[in-house]
Design a protein around this nucleic acid. Structure first.
Ligand code: FES
Ligand code: FES
Lengths: 144, 144
DNA sequence: ATAATAATGGATAAATTTATCCATTATTAT
DNA sequence: ATAATAATGGATAAATTTATCCATTATTAT
C-alpha cells in the first residue's frame, strides 16, 4: 500500500506526536528504537518531514524532534503520505494506466475509484494527534 | 497499490479474456502491444499466470494465450493479485508492522482495516469476465 | 524429416527503493 | 574558546523490482 519510507514516516510521526503531547522532545535514536526502523534511513525520512513542516527539529544538545501545538492540531495522515509517496495513491489508476480518467476509464475504474476515494478521505480526516492519543493510552502499538 | 508486474498481469488477463470471449487466441506480441507493456517482462508474468492456471497457453504456430470457459467463469481479480503480489495487500498492516493483529493493533488499525477489507472483497467479487465485457463493448480501455 | 512459429526458462542488466557511513553544521553547557 | 551533542546532507552500497536477451522446447504445416 505505502512504501517502507512512508510507513516509517507515519510511525515516526505518530511517535513524535505522542511524545510532544507529553511535553517531551525525542531523538532519532529513540524514535528508531521505538518504531523498529533502521536509524539512518529513518533520519532521511525525518529530514523530509521536517522540510515539509510536518514535524519540527532542533540541533545540538537538548535538540531532537517534536511537533508544535499547531502541527499537532493540523497534521493529517494525508500530508505525510503526500510528502513521502506523492499523490499517486490518491489519483492513480488501479490498473496502472498513465492517469485515471473518468471519460476514458480502464475496466476497473468504477470499482476502484470508490475504494481509492475512501482511502483518500480516511487519510484526510484522520489526524496524527488522535492516533497518538490511542498510543499514549496504551491501546495501540508501533512495533511488534 | 499494486506492483507493476501485477498491473500488467491484470491488464493482460482482461485483454486475453476479451479475446477469448470473441473466440480468439492472442500472442505475447499482441498482448504487450494492446496493453502498452514491455514485451519480455510481460512474458514472465504470463508464465506465472499460466502456471497458476489463471490463463492457458499453447506453444508452436497457432499457439498463444487464451482462457477456457471454466477460467472465464471463475477467475476473480483476487486470484491474479494473489498470484503476483501475494496476500500482503489483504492481510498486511497499514503502518507496516510485521503482521496486522486485532489484539495488539497499530494506531491506524481501526481506520485501515475497513478499507483493506473492502478492497479485498471488491477483488474477490469482481470477475475478469465482467471487466472484459466492458472492454469488448468499447466502454473502457487498457492503454492511453 | 524440415522449416517455421510461439511460448518457456535461464542468465543478466538497468532502475528504483531501501539502507549505511561519515564529515559538516548548529547549538548547548562549561 | 572548547568540548559535547544531535540533526543534516552527501556519497555510496545493498536489495528488490523492472526489464532485456537469447537459446531451448513444443507444436504445426509442408
Ligand atoms: S482509469 Fe483506471 S482507475 Fe480510473
Ligand atoms: S495492526 Fe496495523 S492495520 Fe492491523
Amino acid at each position: 500500500m505505502f512504501s517502507k519510507a512512508c510507513e516509517y514516516g507515519l510511525r515516526a510521526t505518530i511517535y513524535i506526536a505522542e511524545q510532544s503531547l507529553s511535553g517531551r522532545k525525542t531523538s532519532l535514536k529513540e524514535i528508531a528504537g521505538s518504531i523498529a526502523s533502521p536509524e539512518s534511513f529513518t533520519s532521511k525520512i525525518l529530514q523530509q518531514l521536517s522540510r515539509s513542516e510536518i514535524i519540527h527539529s532542533d540541533k545540538g544538545p537538548t535538540g531532537g524532534f517534536s511537533m508544535n501545538p499547531h502541527q499537532l492540531e493540523t497534521v493529517k495522515l494525508s500530508s505525510i503520505v503526500a510528502a513521502i509517496d506523492g499523490d499517486h495513491i490518491y489519483k492513480g489508476c488501479g490498473l496502472g494506466l498513465e492517469q485515471c480518467n473518468e471519460k476514458k476509464p480502464c475496466p476497473l475504474h468504477d470499482q476502484f475509484k470508490g475504494i481509492r476515494d475512501e482511502l483518500k478521505s480516511m487519510l484526510e480526516t484522520t489526524s496524527v494527534k488522535e492516533l497518538a492519543l490511542g498510543l499514549k493510552g496504551g491501546l495501540t502499538m508501533l512495533k511488534r
